[in-house]
Computed example of a mutant assay.
Amino acid sequence: MTATITARIGPNAIIQMGEALSARKEQARAARIYGRAGLLPYLAHPPEAMVDEGEVARLFKAVSDEADPQAARALFADAGRRTGRYILANRIPAFARALLPRLPRALAMRILLKAISKHAWTFAGTGHVTYRAGSPASITISENPIATSLGCIWHTAVFETIFSALIRGPVTVRETGCRCGADHHCTFEIS
């Protein structure tokens, strides 16, 4: 008998979506979204460990299926920024938070891209992550399991929050390709 192995994603993809809804005082909307995703218990008891990528995919689909696409996009962006801030405060060592902004932009970018790709499973699950340093730099997630019909707004916000805090000078992250569109991968350009 073989056991089924599922890919795991960091719980903040779920936790911070709940926080974004709570900050908007949208408990009824939160219950509707989490309920459609089959994750209602997480509103009262957020996950404390890595979660199955399928749970995140269901939650993100439930958000993207909301009647108002603009409100859904805003929710994804808020949850992504909250996730980025959590990562900065809790997952990136203090010495790196202090050092990277002092380094030349190109060097800091290469270091950060390498670190992100090393921990890619935490935000891409079974997706395959590659990156390209340069100007602009890019991150690509092939077969992104949590891409949505609205695009990858959550990923864009996470990356922009992290890169803006750790790279010298202004940073913009924009999604230039999405698995849910004509591409089979999601590409994020960082300039």
Rank of each mutant, 00 (worst) to 15 (best):
L75E: 02
A115D: 09
Y34H: 06
L21H: 05
Q27G: 11
A137M: 05
G127L: 06
A182D: 13
A30D: 02
G84F: 02
A89D: 10
K61Y: 08
F60M: 13
V56E: 03
I153M: 08
L43S: 04
Q27A: 15
G177F: 01
F95M: 10
K25C: 10
A157M: 04
A96M: 12
S142C: 09
F60D: 08
G80C: 02
P41W: 09
G134A: 04
P41Q: 08
G10A: 15
L112K: 05
N90T: 11
A79R: 05
P145F: 06
I9C: 06
F76N: 03
T161G: 01
A71M: 07
R179P: 00
E175N: 08
I15K: 11
R36A: 15
R24H: 06
I87F: 06
I146H: 03
V171A: 05
F163Y: 08
R97G: 02
I141G: 04
G151Y: 00
V63L: 05
I15P: 00
A30P: 01
G134I: 04
I162E: 00
T161E: 09
I87Y: 08
L107Q: 10
T187K: 12
A106R: 12
A79E: 03
S117R: 14
H185K: 14
T2R: 15
C178Y: 02
I153H: 12
F159S: 03
Q16D: 11
I92Q: 01
T126W: 07
G134K: 04
Y86P: 00
Y42S: 11
N90M: 04
R29S: 14
A106T: 10
L40Y: 02
A79G: 05
G181Q: 10
V51I: 10
R24T: 02
S142R: 15
C178D: 09
H184G: 14
R32F: 12
